[in-house]
Design a protein around this nucleic acid. Structure first.
Lengths: 233, 233
DNA sequence: ATCAGTATACCTGTATACAAGTATACCTGT
DNA sequence: ACAGGTATACTTGTATACAGGTATACTGAT
């Protein structure tokens, strides 16, 4: 299970904080797939009442990170090969198109210069996280990398959808990094991707991204083998 | 506003029913974009308490059909040119790819035969709805047409995402049909699309779909001109 | 008349009480 | 020992009470 009494951040509503806390616990696998979760129990752990916890659960259900059983119990969604394939397809379709569009537009204007600085920093931090085998931190930095580039495409809706897809993919990616320890390559791929983006080579960007994102599916059978209890189907 | 005392369907939870009822009112424009909505008022109209209404609002907020103002009031989301372009891009990217995949797989097997029967029926009903200028009914049949074909692609996640995008697009489409009265062409396009799908002409399917979905953006300026109060930006 | 300050009327966020349904455990009868 | 039935303990769904904050309206002073 998951017992540390989690501190809630300030400034936002309790429901919002509960949502972020629980979601974070789910996508970092602190809250294991298949775990039954109860409003009462969670409320007690967070030191709040059922109402904001209920709100948080509902949001997680909408995101499909939590499933509702026929008996109306809630359980942290199992990982699923189908879900990974499906989300991966959606993510690749959208991100590939957006990345290529950004490559075509890259120039020396201010938003791009700012992005160059930010990405340079992110790549250093990613290398650091990879050296230290800090998978959770690496995933956050990876997310920042993709978001930074997608932001340049100027399609907020697409960004949101890709974010949702990442929610489903990240747990498996985390597992892949923890169990298979291949983060070094990923940083290298990011660096290449960035280089091609800057030089406006849209064709190469598409190809690299496809390989970059496709890796997860290749690793899927090995991951499933190592942690069968986290998967269903 | 929106005053008829809406009857709630049976079998589901009040929250679920409230969600469906309110969502339906929003996407059919019975509840106009920009309308401020209150938990109390809505609860009274539906004859239930605030709690399930609150749940319904939260789901609609997650779907971005309802916005939260800085003062935490809720308002039915305005239509937005940006949102239409963004959702349209996402929808086209995904649906085009899925349709082409389905075209490549079409054969005489059972799922496809069933789809052929269903689509034949849908096309007839669409022609009928178009003759009677019943825009709401037409949109529902249009949705069924697209869902029927996407279902054959076997990607549940993609289906959900496209469904979300349609939520943002449908209000504008409804307006387009009500104000511009061009439904006849749409049925014709569906028929052509269907014909190409059956004969496995993926290239033509992609081209037709692009034109089919792209129409909305072309009509956008005219719609905005006719109903400026429903738009913001 | 205008502006400031206070009081009031909402609305949402949160907590809690209550209802209804389901699984479990126990107890009884065979 | 086992099956069937009842009681109990928990669960979520719903209603309601309460708190905090914001805008509005009113009152009083300049």
């Amino acid at each position: 299970m998951w017992n540390p009494a989690m501190p809630l951040a300030a400034g936002k509503s309790l429901g919002e904080q509960a949502y972020e806390t629980i979601r974070d616990a789910i996508i970092t696998l602190e809250l294991a797939p298949g775990t039954l979760i109860y409003e009462n129990e969670m409320a007690e752990q967070l030191g709040i009442s059922r109402t904001p916890v209920r709100d948080a659960f509902n949001r997680l259900i909408a995101e499909q990170l939590v499933d509702v059983l026929p008996q109306r119990n809630r359980r942290v969604a199992y990982l699923s090969e189908d879900k990974v394939r499906e989300s991966g397809f959606v993510r690749l379709s959208l991100e590939s198109r957006a990345f290529r569009a950004v490559a075509g537009r890259w120039d020396g204007s201010e938003p791009f210069r700012r992005a160059e600085r930010e990405i340079g920093l992110l790549l250093e931090q990613q290398a650091e996280a990879a050296r230290e085998q800090d998978a959770v931190r690496f995933l956050r930095l990876d997310e920042a990398f993709h978001v930074c580039i997608l932001g340049l495409a100027g399609n907020r809706t697409l960004l949101d959808v890709v974010g949702q897809m990442r929610g489903h993919l990240n747990r498996v990616r985390l597992l892949a990094m923890k169990e298979l320890e291949q983060t070094a390559n990923l940083v290298q791929e990011h660096a290449e991707l960035f280089e091609r983006l800057r030089t406006g080579d849209a064709e190469a960007v598409g190809r690299l991204l496809e390989a970059h994102l496709g890796k997860l599916e290749e690793e899927l059978p090995a991951i499933k083998e190592k942690c069968p209890e986290m998967f269903r189907n």
